[in-house]
Nucleic acid binder design. Sequence first.
DNA 1: AAGCGCAATGTCACCTATTC
DNA 2: GAATAGGTGACATTGCGCTT
Length: 271
Amino acid sequence: MEMKVETDWIELWQGSEAFSNVPHTHDEWMQVTLPVKGVCHFTQEARSFGLEQGSGLIQPPGTNHHFRIGESAAVVIVKVRERGRGGMASVRRDFEAGAGHELRQRFDADAVVARFRTWMLALIQGQSAADPLAVQEVEHDVLAYVSGLIGMEHGETYRSEPPKGVADPHLLRAIAYMHDCYDETISVDELAALALQSRFHFIRSFREATGTTPYQYVLKLRVDEAMARLRRTETTIGQISADLGFASTSQFHRAFLKMTGMTPKAYRLLQ
DNA sequence: AAGCGCAATGTCACCTATTC
DNA sequence: GAATAGGTGACATTGCGCTT
């Protein structure tokens, strides 16, 4: 038995009762496989292993895989598109910067089942009512769950929660937009509009919720990503600067120096 | 108390020069 | 040619006070 709902940026799927599929690869999707009942027999890159209930597997895009489950087993699969509105790009960053090479995480199976039902219901209602805001709310919630799962310490069971101090869904939408589009030009007016607040009030409420200003928040996202690229690629500093939305290498240099205490070149030489 | 706008101040982005 | 640094205008942030 299968159940599936897909939006532009996420896909939720649940399978149960003797399901199997053929080897395949998702080029644009990051997949989180969550066995909520019984054992999921998983094969990834020609390596087979059993995923027990409560033991999740996180896969970056481009990983060849397939799986099967028995009569009494069930699995939930959450896929998030690597790029797009809603902050999906942050998932890969969290995966690479935060989780390192840890691909498996513990999770609360009962909580995932309950959450999956809530997400499915909200998505079906949102899509049938042509309510993009309702769909976006679910997308952001899914993203927060996946990011939290990736970012937590190995062995810890994830208990999904909204970002501390950020309860306003409109503010969350603006933050998600920042995560998604930090490599593009983002104006405070644009973010304030997303948060349904005036520009001035948005800055205050954002600072109150996150401890930093919107502009500094975006800069930090850019510098964090730059650090990751400096570590793992040979891309020139100028190219990284341009790719991350800095108007010039000089701006990139200053922002990087201010936040890390060293120049991009010095940082790369240390790695 | 919450939400908002104005003005002053601080910081950043753009352009250019210099160094390696 | 790439990386770094300086000067200046533009923009973001903050402090304060007003309105609801």
